[in-house]
């Protein structure tokens, strides 16, 4: 059970299980609090799932009355909760905004910076097909011919990137421009390490993605 060092396939550096766990927890928190879908951390999730399996095999070898069994089980349930909730939150966002997510994702795949895992992408596409199919079956096919077109763009909902979020700066970032919508009163602020703010998500979206700030 002293498997501490994990090997991340495809990466040179070794990374300890608790770092993986912390990364997943941060991603979970950010995903829960950001209006838009964030780049996936499937590498970390896969890695942790492997670790959980390994741990579960070892637990089965322990006698049932062993105190360690219940401690390990408790920890695994906690981690599973985070992972499930993380993946579920992403799926909810995908369902909510699937049209815009698929469109954006198409461009991101071309540039190799995809946010969704291949499975999530497939889920999004299937979800959209199901909606289309459902609407055609229940309504569109029953209405006059000139109204039967499935107007995908009119169906599209977008996340509100202007919504206000709370954040904490993990490191000092200078010169965040708080744009005024009409360009006359732009304000510039610095985020000092450890400071906390509330502001519009779109100003700091990139900083969330590169880990310089953490949503709270």
């Amino acid at each position: 059970m002293d498997e501490e060092q994990l090997d991340l396939s495809g990466e040179e550096e070794e990374i300890t299980a608790d770092v993986v766990l912390k990364t997943i927890q941060t991603s979970w928190q950010n995903e829960r609090l950001s209006p838009e879908i964030l780049p996936h951390r499937n590498d970390m999730v896969e890695c942790m799932l492997g670790q959980i399996q390994h741990m579960e095999r070892n637990i089965n070898k322990l006698p049932k009355t062993d105190l360690r069994t219940s401690i390990h089980k408790m920890e695994l349930s906690r981690i599973k909760y985070i992972i499930c909730n993380y993946l579920k939150t992403r799926l909810e966002k995908i369902e909510q905004n699937c049209i815009i997510i698929i469109n954006d994702e198409k461009q991101r795949i071309e540039s190799g910076t995809n946010y969704l895992t291949p499975l999530e992408y497939r889920y999004a596409q299937e979800h959209l097909l199901n909606i289309e199919h459902h609407l055609k079956q229940t309504i569109l096919n029953q209405v006059p011919g000139n109204m039967q077109v499935f107007e995908i763009n009119k169906m599209s909902t977008v996340p509100n990137l202007q919504s206000h979020v709370f954040l904490k700066a993990n490191e000092t970032v200078h010169g965040i421009v708080l744009e005024d919508h009409f360009g006359d009163q732009d304000e510039e602020i610095d985020l000092e390490e450890g400071s906390q703010h509330i502001l519009q998500y779109k100003f700091i979206a990139d900083l969330v993605k590169n880990g310089k700030v953490q949503l709270i």
Partner: peptide, 18 residues
């Protein structure tokens, strides 16, 4: 205002105004 600074507020406190 559309911007505020909230140093030293804990997560639970912040969460209570969400």
């Amino acid at each position: 205002g559309s911007y505020g600074r909230l140093d030293h507020l804990t997560m639970m406190e912040i969460n209570s105004v969400k």
